[in-house]
Computed example of a mutant assay.
Amino acid sequence: MNLIDRHEYILAQLKKSEHVTVMQLCKDLNVSTVTIRKDLKQLEDSNLLFRTHGGATNKNPYIIDRNVFEKEKFYSNEKALISKCAVSHMESHESIIIASGTTMHALADAMDSNMELNVITSSLQVSMKLNQFPAVEVLQLPGILRKSSISISGHYAEQILGDYFCSKLFIGVDGIDITYGLSTTSGQEAKLNKAMIQSAQKVIVLADSSKFGRKSFGRICAIDEIDIIITDYGITPYYKEEIEKLGVKLIIAE
């Protein structure tokens, strides 16, 4: 197979699955890893793909920060399905942590107003929503207001979390990369998320399928440090298989 044919094959595979690995391409095309890596570099130089660790993707894996009102416009139906599924993992009389972000806003909207819960949150919007629920006790974390997400971050919030331990943490992320792990656009928010993980028995990540194969500025943790990922039907077979290999339970919301 010549150069042009290999490039056409690689782009066709990306169109089908959004991600290809060097090893699989070597096997399919019967060429060396050196040849495939050169092919991927040439295609990236032509702005036809983005190289990743061990392969390539057809979507930009690097995330820029957007404000919460922009983010709420994207994947709203998927976030609603994911949130409805996440609520089924809550039990009355639990103490839980809810992080920040648009998926956490959708989670608060999906919650049963009659549930009896203790909730710690960094999100002002989640606090305002849950404040309307008569049986929910809300602890709003203090600290620096991050305007783009309307949430709190900083040392004060991290320090207070050290005095509490909850049964579950529900957290949204900006990126999930197999090798880099979970990430968010804010370094301060990533630090707070790490503290939340230390204060929870079980970590449940709510992430629509667009978050897979992407990475951002602030790394939160490795994938195998969490317990459950709830996502939508758009997740590719590659990421489904890789996440399950890491021993993390993957739930597809329907």
Rank of each mutant, 00 (worst) to 15 (best):
S167Q: 07
L130K: 03
C85R: 02
S153A: 08
V126T: 15
I204F: 01
M90P: 02
A86C: 02
F133A: 11
L14A: 05
R146N: 04
Q24M: 04
K147V: 00
V136G: 01
F69H: 11
E242K: 15
K38M: 07
I98S: 04
L49A: 08
C85L: 04
I152P: 05
I204E: 06
F50L: 04
K84N: 11
S149D: 01
I204D: 01
E94M: 14
Q198Y: 09
R214A: 00
F170Q: 11
D227R: 01
V20H: 12
I235A: 04
T21P: 07
M115L: 14
N60T: 09
L49H: 04
A200H: 04
F133N: 06
V22C: 06
P61W: 02
V87N: 03
Q13E: 08
N58R: 15
D177I: 06
T57P: 02
I82R: 01
Q201P: 11
K59L: 13
N2P: 01
D5F: 04
V136A: 05
S153P: 12
E8T: 13
E44S: 12
V126H: 09
V34Y: 15
Q159I: 07
S17K: 13
S83H: 05
N30S: 13
T57I: 11
K129S: 10
A56V: 04
M111A: 12
E137P: 03
A108R: 08
V68F: 02
K194Y: 08
K16E: 14
D45M: 07
A135C: 02
K215Q: 10
K73F: 11
K15V: 00
Q132K: 10
G162D: 10
I176R: 00
A12H: 12
L192D: 00
I243K: 08
K71F: 00
S113R: 11
Q24R: 12
K202L: 04
E72N: 06
I178C: 03
S210M: 06
V31T: 15
A157Q: 10
S149E: 11
E137S: 15
S209N: 07
T236D: 01
Q125S: 06
V68L: 10
I63V: 15
L139Y: 13
E78L: 06
E18Q: 11
Y239H: 15
A86P: 02
V205E: 01
D174S: 06
S46G: 11
H89R: 10
D109L: 15
S113A: 10
T179C: 10
D65W: 03
H155R: 10
Q201N: 13
K59R: 10
D39E: 14
M90I: 14
N193T: 06
L145W: 09
G247C: 12
N67K: 06
G143M: 14
N77S: 05
T236M: 09
Q132M: 09
F170N: 03
K249L: 08
A222Q: 13
G54M: 02
V248N: 04
S216E: 01
L14R: 07
V20K: 13
T231K: 03
